[in-house]
Write a protein that binds this DNA or RNA. Structure first.
Lengths: 135, 135
DNA sequence: GTTGACTCTCCTGTCCGCTGGAGGGTTTAT
DNA sequence: ATAAACCCTCCAGCGGACAGGAGAGTCAAC
């Protein structure tokens, strides 16, 4: 039986191996995204190393425009596999819908931009259309 | 020849027909997204009605997560069809890349979330995995 | 056992994108 | 002529997501 030791990290180590600043980690703990798994005698936070992954997850969600509050909701799914699930399930489903909407809008914008670009390319320096009509 | 009268709107009218609050319009003017096309005797702003469209554009871009600064850059394309274009062209192209990246990430997240949802559905109330392993 | 790096709490400041309010002038309708 | 609605400027504040720094305690190494 392989004893997989769950390493405990001090905040600086966690910061280092997650790429998230110490200050931010403390902030996340404050608002409940994270929980230290203990403290030393001298009140140093100790984090289970799984928090490296957790922070990665947070950062990924955040990179997609979710607010920390929304991320907290998502994390609740992981933390309590428990049964306020109904709400959370709905929320997640809702998020998925949001994503779909976002994607289609993005694609639309993408098209607009690229068409703008090609217009720009084809009429290289036509100062004529100084006040662009295609707005 | 059809004389297309360019209507001038007071800020309230512009607000009404664009759906953007008066305060916000003034703010946008402050930071240079918009320009009043004149003032009355008594210093009331007057806006060309094309600004209705302009505000719509701004709001759409904003809805897609662009900062007001980035939007300003985009608008510069319209306003000066002029030749800092090189930078702006690059920026727009960059935006397109960003969009692509965002879309792929969104789709990835979407998949994660849906798989989470289905897992949840299939194992209805398995309190067993209270601390979810698939983080 | 002392130095230097690390950490603690608490408080303040920053940037963004507004929003609210005070205090006061302007337009428009009647 | 007056009231209601509208507009002006300026300044303050707010929520989100941190970052900076003061002042003090702790840990690890030599």
């Amino acid at each position: 039986m392989i004893t997989q030791e769950p390493k405990l990290l001090k905040i600086g180590q966690l910061a280092h191996s997650s790429g998230v600043p110490v200050k931010t980690i403390r902030y996340y703990e404050d608002i409940g995204l994270l929980r230290a798994d203990g403290r030393t005698e001298g009140q140093y936070r100790l984090f289970h190393d799984s928090n490296v992954v957790r922070l990665g997850f947070i950062k990924r969600l955040q990179g997609l425009g979710l607010s920390l509050q929304e991320i907290a909701d998502c994390l609740a799914v992981y933390d309590h596999g428990e049964l306020p699930c109904k709400d959370i399930h709905a929320k997640l489903a809702h998020q998925v819908e949001n994503i779909d909407r976002q994607v289609t809008e993005l694609l639309l914008l993408r098209q607009e931009l690229t068409s703008l670009l090609t217009t720009w390319n084809s009429s290289p320096t036509t100062t004529a259309n100084a006040i662009c009509p295609n707005l």
